[in-house]
Nucleic acid binder design. Structure first.
Lengths: 241, 241
DNA sequence: ACTTAGATTTCGCCG
DNA sequence: CGGCGAAGTCTAAGT
């Protein structure tokens, strides 16, 4: 990884056009070819950047980072519609380096991979193992139940053998309700699924999403991943004593 | 801005749990308090990070970055639902520093803001100047036509003086269709707008969005910002010869 | 302060 | 390789 602290002006052209006036910034060039320009504020997101793969051309006073046109993004001209977006000009990041304050390179080798838990995928796995959390007597029929507008997260049957489509989110917004509604609309055309109902299961459900869901007859279930995982006891002890 | 190159192990707990095994990485600490951990690969996105505002506690061999619980995210316990998601523990980034290779601080002062063009806003301006791009004979009545669920990007009249609501996106997904549908539903209640139709205009329209739009009687128009801007000629010369 | 919508979103999975 | 959905999305703007 190469770290350059320099006074520079940065110009990006590609999907849009952007200009950073001359100022002192950090240029980070990773060994995979990605380049980031960071200011001292505005954390997380670089002021400007280019993701790998890139071609980097360095000359005294300037660094130009290019992405080969036709790679990474469709440059094909298949459409004969109104906007066959033509030969998209290449992405280009031009850095005019006025003054170099520091320029060091560090060999970092390979950094081991990151392990995560707690994302939606895990929630789906946990609920697949405990479908009754979504509703009394629920039995899982299949995860990722296919429809032609996308997969239903969990397809279950309830205690009356009725079909139930379960949509899972970490945070459920109004979009999640719309999504589940589309599935239900779609399923309604399938023989046998006319009365399929919907359940929205999430670690957190936004108030507006809850209102919309309930107005559409969709049940809402807030679940606690930690409890499902067995890391923590439920707050209410059922069958106590 | 402080740049530390160090062999370190990183542990994040908060919205999820993540561990980065010991390896050589760059720690970037900006003056606004944001902290990023970058590996030498996997550009753009830090391996781990914490956005400002933060509290940073440094001791020999360790750096702990905290976000005050209750700030930035709701730590309230208003819900009495099934999952009163408990006392959300604070966000915490723990960096165990094994070996410091480099540790430098640079004063970068203020960097001027980024100027960009080519985003959705510009597309709206371009189409407002050329409403006929959205449909034959279209005339602009008003940009940002207000409704009580948000503004319609462009409100036009077509060659038959019928109302047309135009929704503009840079990339149109299924969400854009839902949004326009909501506007049309809303407008249908307004006197005179019962027959208002919809047009989805975007630099790129996803196939599923197109299918959904057309199944709802919404026209789709792909537009090329470069052509609208006059930077480039359309690929197909109409009225050729 | 909170909510909503945009982003050069980026990223990862599955077809 | 392309489409689609999630993200510790982040971020800026509006209410």
């Amino acid at each position: 990884m190469r770290l350059i602290v320099a006074r520079c002006e940065v110009r990006y052209t590609g999907r849009l056009t952007a200009v950073l006036p001359e100022a002192l910034r950090l240029l980070m060039i990773k060994s995979d070819g990605s380049v980031m320009v960071h200011a001292d504020t505005g954390g997380f997101k670089p002021s400007n950047w280019m993701t790998a793969p890139t071609v980097i051309e360095e000359e005294p006073g300037s660094i130009v980072v290019r992405k080969r046109a036709g790679t990474g993004r469709s440059a094909g001209r298949s459409s004969i519609g109104r906007a066959p977006h033509g030969p998209i000009s290449e992405d280009r990041l031009e850095i005019r380096v006025v003054e170099v304050v520091s320029d060091v390179t560090h060999d970092m080798g390979e950094a081991a991979a990151l392990e995560k838990e707690g994302v939606e995928r895990e929630l789906q796995e946990l609920l697949a193992d405990s479908p009754e959390t979504c509703g009394e007597g629920f039995r899982l029929v299949r995860r990722e139940w296919p429809t032609d507008i996308g997969p239903v997260d969990l397809m279950c049957r309830d205690s009356d053998d009725g079909w139930v489509a379960v949509e899972i989110k970490r945070v459920a917004t109004i979009d999640a309700v719309e999504q589940l509604t589309r599935y239900l609309e779609r399923l309604a055309d399938e023989p046998g699924f006319a009365s399929c109902r919907g359940v929205l299961a999430a670690a957190a459900i936004k108030p507006q999403a809850r209102v919309l869901a309930e107005s559409r007859g969709i049940d809402c279930v807030e679940v606690d991943p930690a409890v499902l995982r067995g890391d923590r006891e439920p707050d209410l002890t059922l069958f106590a004593g």
